[in-house]
Write a protein that binds this DNA or RNA. Structure first.
Lengths: 221, 221
DNA sequence: GTCTATAGTGGGATAGAC
DNA sequence: GTCTATCCCACTATAGAC
């Protein structure tokens, strides 16, 4: 969330606006939905809608937030069942695609803004850092109970999140029926990622791993 | 360019609009530049500007086109001098960053366009735009005269281009002074990429290479 | 702090005459 | 190909109610 708590009534209004917005987005697309229509449908004044959301784009952050929460709870059921890194990672990434499916049609519009660095919607922006942090934390939990070289354990959550962002990027552009190709990509790439992670155990690759780690610290913004 | 030729006078008007737009974008940023201001400065009516460019974003595509051409010619001088894969790749990628530098402030807006799946310019879209093809071809020329395993030679141009897209993605979000961090990233990652390419020579990794190749063919849109 | 109502402004985009 | 006139809508401003 962007704003701090507020009263119960405020939270309710806020939620109602997000809900209505998502419904209308799904129905008429992002551009086809006006702030006036959202306000009307949510039974608030236009000004009041802007009281809660600084801009139309800002509403999308509410969507991110909701999606993240839904993903988290779906992911937890996966993590409760699976113990192998491969199954855990695949399950969690798949859960995101499952969860986001109904919004596929207008996700492109969001992503368009999200890839603008000056937009608060950018996954790398300051504004989305709470969402980002909890997403990264989720990929940290993917590693729970698995055997991972301590050499990379600290960096892995962020790297796995980055990998998942790559999947999202692909998904947004995936026009195959029911995004079948995205599922194929996950199926095929997760084992590769896991192999790579396991390789980091070997002495032989220690210097290469150190190289990558140094690259990351130097280059992290 | 998007539209076909048109008359000489039309081409002139069109070019004038692009030139003015780039100048104003650089001066006041993308959002700070209105279509009205562009039209006025280019001495055409607002409607006439829209005759040539379907949208404000569309104007940015003119910029992309111009940048691509400039990059290619700068890259050629690099390729004429260097013979080692590492130096060639580093030089070509650096050339892009050098060339794009003056436009850094509003380059994000361009990137936004490119990552819109519904945009024909989307670098990941099926209908390969000529610009994308010539960019990939450029990374093919990076390999000229270098020793690369025939197992990967066919896929490498596209993969190197993908790597370069990753650098661009980073650059767009890079807020360090004179994008120093992007240059660091190039400096550190190019050797890793080259090492990886050289590793593909070894029998030991043949199955892994085949895995990746199969992944690519299955997942290519 | 939450909300209404209303009246703007600015700028992207379009229609249709010439 | 070029214009003028207009539309639409995100967003702002303001003044006040509870």
């Amino acid at each position: 969330m962007i704003t701090s708590a507020g009263s119960a009534r405020g939270q309710e209004t806020r939620q109602r606006i997000v809900d209505v917005a998502l419904e209308l987005f799904r129905e008429h697309g992002y551009d086809g939905t006006t702030m006036r229509a959202i306000a009307k449908e949510a039974r608030v004044s236009l000004g009041n809608a802007y009281y809660y959301f600084a801009s139309k784009d800002d509403l999308v952050l509410g969507f991110y937030d909701q999606l993240q929460t839904a993903h988290e709870s779906l992911a937890e059921t996966v993590l409760a069942q699976e113990t192998e890194l491969e199954a855990r990672l695949r399950g969690v990434v798949r859960a995101w695609v499952d969860e986001a499916e109904p919004y596929k049609d207008f996700a492109g519009k969001f992503f368009r803004n999200a890839s603008d660095p000056s937009s608060p919607l950018s996954p790398f922006s300051k504004e989305s850092s709470p969402v980002r942090d909890s997403a990264i934390a989720l990929y940290g939990r993917v590693l729970d109970g698995t055997k991972v070289s301590p050499l990379v354990k600290d960096d892995l959550p962020e790297l796995l999140w980055l990998y998942a962002m790559g999947i999202v990027l692909y998904w947004v552009h995936d026009a195959s029926p029911r995004t079948a190709k995205t599922y194929t990509l996950i199926e095929r790439s997760v084992p590769l990622v896991v192999k790579l992670v396991n390789l980091s155990r070997y002495r032989l690759l220690r210097s290469a791993v150190e190289d990558v780690k140094r690259l990351l610290t130097d280059v992290k913004q």
